[in-house]
Design a protein around this nucleic acid. Sequence first.
RNA 1: GGAGAGGUGGCAGAGUGGUCGAAUGCGGCGGUCUUGAAAACCGUUGACGGGUUAAACCGUCCGGGGGUUCGAAUCCCUCCCUCUCCGCCA
Length: 426
Amino acid sequence: MLDPKLLRSDLENVSKDLQRKGFELDHALFSSLEEQRKTLQVETQELQSVRNQRSKEIGAAKGRGEDISPLKAEMDELAQTLKEKGQQLNELQTRLQEWLMGIPNIPHESVPPGKSEEDNRVERTWGDPTQLDFEPKDHVELGEGLQQIDFETGAKITGSRFVVLHSNIARLHRALIQFMLDMHTKAHGYTEVYVPFIVNSDSLHGTGQLPKFKEDLFRVETDNEYYLIPTAEVPVTNIWRNEIVNIEKLPIKYVCHTPCFRSEAGSYGKDTRGLIRQHQFEKVELVQLVHPDNSWQALEELTGHAEAVLQTLELPYRLVTLCGGDLGFSAAKTYDLEVWLPAQNCYREISSCSNFLDFQARRMKARWKDKESKPRLLHTLNGSGLAVGRTLVAILENYQNEDGTIRIPKALVSYMGGVIELKSAD
RNA sequence: GGAGAGGUGGCAGAGUGGUCGAAUGCGGCGGUCUUGAAAACCGUUGACGGGUUAAACCGUCCGGGGGUUCGAAUCCCUCCCUCUCCGCCA
């Protein structure tokens, strides 16, 4: 959520900045709601003030044993007016709040203009695209060839966009998770957390998935309004919802492995082949809560932590800055890491690292405080470190041999119990 | 699932219709004392919103929502959460 004070004081510029995200701000609506709110709020508060004063007088008069019935009659009318005004104010504030919740974050000035991913800016490339002296197979062909990736059974058990992994590919999938968690805890100073995979709607409002993106979520059928998490970002960031953290604890850095569940509404027909876009996938997520002065530096660092995983696995990738139009709802700036996939002959997203500034923190009331000052909003960041399924895809495709076997990256051999190659007999 | 107890400020904990945003203790901050620190003593210390150049000032908040009342932390309804015991169970 944006700062309402900013909207009141600088509507023109906010509006201009939001256009870079392709968002049209309704000036007239805001101005009119805001004006009504102000008038009503002042009126209501004045009435409340009178009521409080009169009530005290009644109390005092009663204490002296006086007749209070004339005073009470006067109060009846006041109470009635107050009730009406109060209700109007409530409705208005709810409307304003909902409207505000639907406004995306303002893109940072360094975010390139543009409408779609074609306008994203490539910042740097690491490694050379893998050269194979044979026709590369894609991960589906490789996995099915080894009889260790089984989409048909996934579809039978549940439906499309689900998968069953077998034997050493299942193990490699697990090895990747352990490897990533170990790296981020040991080398990058993150604390590992384990969190619920089902969350309530308050948490989803906090990080920005609700109210606008309900159709992307799986709702759990219970009396409570519960959802499966679309990313660990939701439960992990919400650890600090409605909390005030002592400045000495900053920065807070969490790493968390969870499954992620996404309905993928609106992506019908897109990436229908393979592991790239599943309803259920594993992700190791990096989350930071930092002092507002440090969030831009933290974004560079966090992105570097995700890059380190790719580098250690020796997977070629590039780093792009998302353009305004491709930027997510809550983010002020996002770096995507795109890994090279030989079979597709292109780079594909494997990590997304964002700075949200105080946008999520304001929704969540996640604040920090030092000795002298009042509570102030934190800045939040997160990034994939990395998406596990897509990393598996990248390894299969980049480390394939002509006969369809797969070499295991050096860094993973110990996690694979010494296995150095995936073969169909496994 | 059954029975019971409870949710109050950073924490602990009093408060059962008015002068209660809330005693007291701890913690925090400032000071006295001290070469310094500790102890002791004194003072101070909630959040959010409106308002103001700044202040003054005003409002809201005692788990959430609703109700009764001139007036609610306190009474009623409802939901959520925590704890204890029993049952079941990875």
